[in-house]
Simulated assay, not measured.
Amino acid sequence: MRRRTFLELTATLGAGVTWPSAAAAAAAVPGTGAADGPGARPGRRRPDLIVAADGSGDLTTVQAAIDAAPSGATTPYVIGIRPGAYLGQVVVPAAKTFLELRGLGSGPADVVIADDRANGTLKPDGTPWGTSGSASVTLSGADFRAADLTFANLFDEAAHPEITNRQAVAVLTRADRLAFERVRFLGNQDTLYVNSTAAGVIARAYFRDCHVEGDVDFIFGRATAVFERCRIHSLDRGSTPNGYVTAPSTDLANPHGLLFARCRLTSDAAAGTVLLGRPWHPGNDPNAVGQTVVRESWIGPHVGETAWSDFGTWPWTQARLREYRNVGPGALVTAGRPQLTRAEAAVNEIPDFLRGADGWSPDLPRHRA
């Protein structure tokens, strides 16, 4: 599956749909006190600001709304985003806490927030952006949430053969207690970078009913990140290997890295050509002993008898890479695919990853099974 272009992503946005004015979007709904436009759900706080590219809201860009939000908030500040394409880098600084970006369309594809730079893309000063600098969206504010929208990096590898460092991040997370629901993350290499402020610092992120796609190391970093009921889609590069789903760099002191629970791992790639991951040691850090756990998930035939790979000189067998009770044509149990024991599985549930010292439990009850 080739990467979708920006024009393809946005060609049908809002087609045949009439969206309400900012005043209508803030109209009261019986029993909730507020609405946020089409698809409003009972109990949801109405937006504090409306972003609309066509000028029908309070502001026309996502970054302007973030800049207008209060600093140091201790309660949610909701930015509603009308259907449309919002192209340009977005940064949520550490001071902007408790922000929520909420798409106001009928589904995540109706609101697209994207940029198109890669690691090797040059800045105006002639130096490259680097992997972190390539991010379309950088999230450094704690307690951030997003729902019902798409984040994408639209860097076109084929159009830029001169750029060899092709890491192109859609979203970089650096903060703690982040939650995403019904959000799409689109890219090729290094789509979703779940990180923290420094090695040894734990930062937690929760993804539910989301879609993440890419090819090489497209979910990576040292954060503690839980993916529940998500679709994890590997793009077809037409090569062998076709790519790696994860590249965890979890610090050795952190018992919890990347967890995929009740997810669907899919691909259009040939059978047995995609690997579940490889351990990343940034800066050759020996303490970056990555953890990826895939449990009780459906795995397509794109994953074969060997699911893990070495990363340079770092052997995968020394990392924390495990599976448990997966199903599907690619859910094989072989010597190259170590499994959790029942006792290990009992201490690697979703709450174990997210609870932390503060007892955090993301409050996303609307679709809880």
Rank of each mutant, 00 (worst) to 15 (best):
Asp115Ala: 14
Pro93Ser: 08
Ala205Arg: 07
Leu340Cys: 09
Arg262Lys: 11
Asp54Gln: 09
Leu340Pro: 08
Pro76Val: 07
Gly80Leu: 12
Arg145Ile: 00
Asp176Tyr: 03
Asp58Gly: 07
Arg342Gln: 10
Thr292Ser: 15
Arg355Val: 03
Pro241Arg: 08
Thr197Ser: 12
Asn119Thr: 11
Thr334Gly: 05
Lys96Trp: 07
Leu192Pro: 03
Thr138Pro: 02
Gly84Cys: 04
Gln167Arg: 01
Gly214Arg: 04
Arg45Ser: 13
Val333Tyr: 10
Leu321Met: 13
Pro38Glu: 07
Gln189Ile: 03
Ile163Pro: 00
Ala11Tyr: 06
Thr5Arg: 13
Pro241Leu: 03
Val303Tyr: 12
Arg355Met: 06
Phe353Ala: 01
Thr246Asn: 14
Glu213Trp: 04
Asn153Phe: 01
Glu100Lys: 09
Gln291Val: 06
Arg177Tyr: 03
Gly130His: 10
Phe220Thr: 06
Gln189Pro: 00
Trp19Leu: 15
Arg174Thr: 06
Pro70Ala: 08
Gly238Thr: 05
Pro248His: 05
Arg342Asp: 12
Thr250Trp: 06
Thr273Pro: 06
His256Ile: 00
Gly130Trp: 09
Asn153Tyr: 00
Asp352Met: 01
Ala52Pro: 10
Ala53Arg: 11
Ala11Gln: 15
Ala335Asp: 02
Arg366Gly: 03
Ala64Gly: 12
Asp54Ile: 12
Pro161Met: 09
Tyr77Gly: 05
Leu149Met: 06
Gly55Ile: 13
Arg177His: 11
Asp217Trp: 12
Arg145Cys: 01
Asn165Glu: 07
Pro93Cys: 05
Ile202Ala: 13
Glu228Pro: 03
Leu235Met: 15
Leu275Val: 01
Arg337Tyr: 02
Leu275Gln: 11
Pro282Met: 11
Arg2Gln: 15
Ala68Gly: 10
Ala270Cys: 11
Asn254Thr: 04
Lys96Gln: 02
Tyr244Ala: 07
Gly300Asn: 14
Thr32Val: 09
Leu154Asp: 01
Gly257Asp: 13
Ile202Phe: 08
Ala146Gln: 07
Ala346Lys: 02
Asp363His: 07
Ala53Cys: 06
Ala205Gln: 14
Gln63Val: 02
Phe185Met: 02
Asn287Gln: 14
Asp148Pro: 00
Leu235Ser: 09
Gly37His: 05
His211Thr: 01
Gly328Asp: 00
Gly37Val: 09
Thr32Asn: 14
Asn195Tyr: 12
Pro365Ile: 10
Ala34Thr: 15
Ala261Cys: 06
His233Thr: 05
Pro42Gln: 12
Asp209Gly: 02
Phe220Asn: 14
Phe207Gln: 02
Gly272Thr: 09
Ala345His: 13
Trp129Thr: 08
Glu305Leu: 11
Ile350His: 04
Trp316Val: 02
Ile202Lys: 12
Gly31Ser: 04
Ala147Phe: 00
Leu101Asn: 01
Thr306Phe: 14
Glu157Tyr: 13
Leu99Gly: 04
Ala94Leu: 04
Arg166Trp: 08
Gly84Trp: 00
Val111Asp: 01
Gly103Val: 03
Gly312Leu: 10
Ser71Thr: 10
Ala179Ile: 07
Trp129Asp: 03
Trp360Tyr: 06
Glu305Cys: 03
His302Phe: 15
Asn165Ala: 09
Pro38Arg: 08
Gln167Pro: 00
Thr5Cys: 13
His211Ser: 01
Glu157Phe: 13
Arg229Ala: 10
Ala85Asn: 04
Asp217Arg: 14
Pro93Ile: 05
Ala179Asn: 07
Phe220His: 15
Ala27Ile: 10
Pro329Ile: 14
Arg237Phe: 09
